[in-house]
Design a protein around this nucleic acid. Structure first.
Lengths: 120, 120
DNA sequence: CCTTCTAGTGTCAGGAATGATACCATGCCC
DNA sequence: GGGCATGGTATCATTCCTGACACTAGAAGG
């Protein structure tokens, strides 16, 4: 997913669909957002534990992109060892119904897709 | 987006979110689905005209994947010149609220993201 | 002095995703 | 015979994504 593609919105009428998708179409972004919806505030290490298989570098990357898009806030506590907290911004919170729609659909229809794949 | 990643659903609780996203996270899939929701049935060439910048190869690829996932049906009319129609399957139609949620969010919040990007 | 903890960063490499281009069949029209 | 139309394929090149791995700071604990 994800991948950053168009930079302009001046294309076809459904373009905002793509634009929205680019915000959390990255490999782990939807999952990051999902966990932030669930838990509210999470430290870097906590996120990492919730996303098995994600590398440190990828998690950092994705979080930075989410931050750049204004969906997630990053709060650094000047302590040692480091302490950084991630949370949804107000804008990020507005994505809740979208993520929820994705999850609802997945919970209800994932099995249908599994079946289709198996038919190959 | 598009990229196929996990094959198993036996991961974190929010995994169905990712699974759903993989279905239409491909570069043009959401847009394809969007236009099929709008217009019902579309021929290959009509789709191509609605998606400026998409190459023939990409469009074919994405359509084949959507078909393999059971979201889109492909009907070939044995004529010359060729005539192929694409439409949503019943499963594909159930994605409507999801795509709608993406579009609604985009229409409402795209400008906020534009502003954030500009701040770079 | 050595290790541990957290939250990173830098570099490199492999592979997948995407794009450009050229090509195909075939029936119709001139 | 030549060109057009439609819905593709095949091949190649490139760009982008992602992962593996190593490395850092700085305080605390032994």
């Amino acid at each position: 997913m994800p991948r950053i593609r168009h930079t302009t919105l001046a294309c076809s009428p459904g373009c905002t669909v793509e634009a929205t998708l680019e915000l959390f179409g990255g490999k782990w972004k939807a999952l990051i957002l999902y966990h932030l919806f669930e838990d509210g505030v999470l430290r870097f290490g906590e996120l990492r534990r919730r996303l098995p298989n994600v590398t440190q570098r990828m998690l950092t990357n994705q979080l930075r992109e989410l931050e750049a898009d204004g969906l997630v806030s990053r709060t650094v506590f000047p302590e040692v060892p480091p302490h950084v907290e991630y949370a949804l911004t107000d804008l990020g919170k507005t994505l809740k119904p979208v993520i929820q729609a994705l999850k609802t659909w997945g919970d209800r229809h994932a099995h249908s897709v599994q079946r289709n794949k198996a038919a190959d």
